[in-house]
Design a protein around this nucleic acid. Structure first.
Lengths: 227, 227
DNA sequence: ACCTGAACACCGTTCAAGT
DNA sequence: ACCTGAACACCGTTCAAGT
């Protein structure tokens, strides 16, 4: 007690990285509604205002959480397989973020990207389309189309899994009269949560098949404009 | 002054419908962040707590707003065209909700459907797949795949349009070095906001072509299980 | 430089009253 | 039945101090 000057100091010094990690853990544990500057401070053993010394606002903390999520994106090695196979794995990897961080994933869909790190991710993704032989215009169309699909799939997956064990058929039982909804009643068993993996594969393969059909064997992996 | 008993009464009596309409207008005007029970009360000329007499919580008001959004869904008449064409128009109609109510649309993606009215919408949509000759399993896959696409497209559209006039190339100019991101630099012009309509059409037509190729001419528009 | 603590202007919601 | 108004337990953030 006489030797140590600061008795109740936090275990580790506060830093942007430590704050962002704690923020993601807090969102994973408590959901986005349970995340506040005060609850984050409490988890770090610090007053809420201490965070403002490392981030100018709550929004900037959430931007850092988004960077963290993108850093978690499991990505296939560059020369490991065909470009199409690597694109397939990258899309599955993106879905993996939604499955691993269901409470945080909506940040990626709902918030704009403000971090510089996101451009490196874009570059790596667009590289794959170039390797498939797509020009810039086709790349843009496919980049967005696949992005729409995987973002929407992540959000819907999360919403479906939130009700255990089977959202749709549960709600269907609460629906007024199943007899007046014959199509809903017929399709409901195939909308169960245990079908979500297969449905994602189906949609992704449908899109990738169309992409493959449209792509020509590349003469060069480089984009058309000057290197 | 002597004749009228209640001098400062609200122009119209408060009702669930009037509250839901005002809530959607408030979200359209001020965004989801500007929507609160207090600001909604102020817009209705009433104390915030008066709303609780018609809805048990803020979440129930938002559910009513979602119902209102779905009621706005422009839907093609039943016998107006081929089932595929009506499905196409329905998907464009769903996108129209995102374009007309960019601040409210994320409610449809992020919140679960608790209203009974949504089942009628599902039934009408699934009817189209049955008319296309798809069985229940294929209907479920296509229902979700198209839903993923249009939901993701709506969210991305909204995010892209939020920065005027051109999100991506603006941010690209702020990016560290465009020279180290050749693919991003090449594709950026095709990611502009004025391309979003064309990109949505491309993705939707890609999916509908695959659907059409897979569908067989229907023997009956009814689902397989008993009516 | 880094953190605290009070304060301000907000939230959603409960509860007791008013009419 | 319908609405008010005070109150409670929260927010994000500013600002003045502390070390």
């Amino acid at each position: 007690m006489s030797r140590v000057a600061r008795p109740a100091a936090p275990r580790t010094a506060l830093s942007p990285e430590r704050i962002a990690e704690a923020a993601l853990q807090l969102i994973d544990d408590e959901g986005l509604d349970g995340f506040s500057m005060r609850s984050l401070g409490a988890r770090l053993g610090v007053e809420a205002m201490a965070i403002y010394h490392h981030y100018p606002s709550k929004g900037h903390v959430l931007d850092a959480v988004m960077d963290h999520l993108l850093a978690d994106w499991r990505w296939p090695p560059s020369g490991s397989a065909t470009a199409l196979e690597r694109l397939r794995r990258a899309m599955h990897g993106y879905r993996g973020i939604a499955l691993a961080h269901p409470h945080a994933f909506p940040l990626l869909v709902g918030r704009r990207f403000n971090s510089p790190g996101v451009f490196a991710v874009y570059e790596r993704l667009l590289q794959l389309f170039a390797e498939l032989g797509l020009d810039a215009a086709a790349t843009a169309r496919w980049f967005r189309t696949l992005g729409y699909f995987v973002s929407g799939a992540g959000m819907a997956d999360i919403a479906s899994r939130e009700i255990e064990p089977d959202a749709t058929s549960l709600r269907l039982q609460h629906a007024p009269q199943s007899v007046t909804l014959p199509h809903v009643a017929a399709v409901a068993p195939h909308l169960r949560v245990d079908q979500l993996d297969a449905v994602f594969d189906f949609g992704l393969e449908t899109l990738l098949s169309a992409l493959e059909r449209q792509a020509r064997p590349p003469r060069s992996a480089r984009p058309r404009v000057g290197r």
